Simulated assay, not measured.
Amino acid sequence: MGALVAPFCVVAQREDYIMSDYRGRFAPTPSGPLHFGSLITALASFLDARHAGGAWLVRIEDVDPPRCPPGADAEILRQLEAFGLHWDEAVSYQSTRHAAYQTALDRLAALGLAYPCSCSRKQWREHAIYPGWCRDTLREPGKPVAWRLRSDLGLRPIAWQDRLFGEQAFDPAQLGDVVLKRKDDLWAYQLAVVVDDADQGISDVVRGYDLLDNTPWQRQLQAALDLPTPRYLHLPLIVADNGQKLSKQNLAPALPTDDDAVRPLLHQALVALDQAPPAMLANAPVADQLAAAIAAWDASRLQAQAFRPLPQG
């Protein structure tokens, strides 16, 4: 599969601290600016990579252009830099990766693990999961099709050891045949993330708990495509006072970029990650806070909670 190419590349200076094979990444969707929940994921993945002496990459997951307003990616990069989260290689963009995804889909189809589907969500709304009507024959020839993963034929059951939530086991067939390519010709998350993690040599994935049940499909795809499997660490989700997950859809406030606001918020994020940062560093320069946090990072301190209230500060 081809090398990653970005519409514009932002490269941080690669330093001597990269001393291991650890390769981590932060992969936001540029549907708007980062918020505190995004910061938790970015910071944890950054600290995990730096403490291991590894590389940390940024990938912009812009496979859904209607959801990605112009300039959102640049704003995300500015926010990361304001918090001292500097990446080690060119920023990659999924919007440039169509050929790699098509190659993977063609291979899955040749293996009988991907199939075209003309069904609409409205047609199967009374079913908990898509019932597989098009698995053997296209139900409505001539209509636009999505491409789905044949989850009943791939590797199953799927079991793995999450670094925080422990032993996990799922049967992907009970989750349904996930979409790999949409009817509007846009690539879906599951296939794109698997292809990109493999092409970038990602060894460790640190992301939110809301993606834990996506892992079985991704493990199926990795097995079918003969791709390596990274280690997974799923993080508790930060929820607002109303119990809703912090998200752009729920109008979570954007992260600031001015230093006076960034410093205490960075400390607050370290507290939310159960890292017990020294109180004396609560308003210290970003570089000082991160240096201490990298040295002290311990993922085993994280409490295995699916949801966590927004810390007060």
Rank of each mutant, 00 (worst) to 15 (best):
A304R: 08
P33R: 10
R50A: 11
T41E: 10
E75R: 14
C119W: 08
T215L: 04
D274H: 15
G24E: 02
V178N: 00
D258T: 11
R78L: 13
G54M: 06
W133D: 05
R207P: 10
C119R: 10
Y115N: 07
F83H: 05
A279G: 00
A272P: 08
L270W: 06
M19E: 14
P70N: 04
F46A: 09
K245H: 11
G313Y: 09
G313I: 14
S92N: 01
G243D: 07
R163L: 15
V5S: 12
K181F: 02
R182K: 15
S20L: 06
L108W: 07
V206C: 09
P33D: 12
C9A: 15
E89S: 12
N214D: 11
L155I: 00
D171C: 03
V63A: 14
S120G: 10
L281M: 12
P66L: 07
Q102I: 00
A52D: 13
G208P: 03
G176P: 02
D64C: 02
A42E: 06
R14N: 03
I40N: 00
K143T: 14
L221M: 13
L108C: 11
E61C: 01
L302C: 09
G2P: 15
G2L: 12
L265F: 05
T96M: 14
L266I: 12
A272W: 05
L113P: 11
Y115I: 05
G313M: 10
C117V: 04
L266W: 11
C119V: 10
L281D: 10
T137V: 14
F83S: 04
D199S: 14
N242L: 06
R231K: 12
L111Q: 15
P116W: 06
R156C: 08
D259Y: 00
V262N: 11
R139T: 15
D260Y: 00
A146I: 02
A198V: 11
A49I: 10
L281T: 11
D241A: 15
V193Y: 03
W124K: 00
S31E: 02
D288N: 10
D196H: 06
R25M: 05
V58N: 06
L175V: 03
C68H: 02
L39R: 09
V205I: 15
G71F: 06
F36W: 07
W217M: 07
Y17T: 13
A282F: 03
A114P: 02
V178M: 00
N250R: 13
A295L: 14
F46M: 09
G53S: 08
V205T: 01
Q244P: 00
R25Q: 05
W87N: 07
L211T: 08
Q222S: 11
V63N: 12
A159L: 00
P253T: 02
D210L: 02
D62S: 05
A292Y: 13
S247A: 10
D88F: 04
A99I: 01
V194C: 09
Y232D: 08
T137G: 01
L77W: 01
A82G: 08
P230W: 01
A276W: 07
